[in-house]
């Protein structure tokens, strides 16, 4: 359970990313690819967390994760 004070934060490891683009297809409001084709997180605390969970599960390289943290920054 995530308490009200906690925030789900989307993280992407740009060294692990292989630029498959699945996250962009799954949750285009949250993920993009930069000019190098590598993942860029557009929104670290998105509302549609279900789409993000699908993107995390589908990511071929395992570059994406969701962590809990406080708004102050954990």
């Amino acid at each position: 359970m995530v308490s009200d004070e906690q925030l789900l934060r989307v993280r992407a490891d740009r060294d692990v990313c292989i630029g498959a683009g699945m996250c962009v297809l799954t949750a285009g409001a949250v993920f993009d690819q930069d000019d190098d084709g590598v993942v860029a997180v557009l929104d670290e605390t998105p509302e549609d967390i279900d789409a993000v969970r699908r993107a995390v599960a589908n990511c071929p390289s395992g570059a994406l994760s969701i962590s809990t943290g406080t708004p102050a920054g954990a």
Partner: peptide, 8 residues
């Protein structure tokens, strides 16, 4: 190669 195959 990945810049050539991005979604954009």
């Amino acid at each position: 190669l990945i810049p050539e195959f991005t979604v954009r």
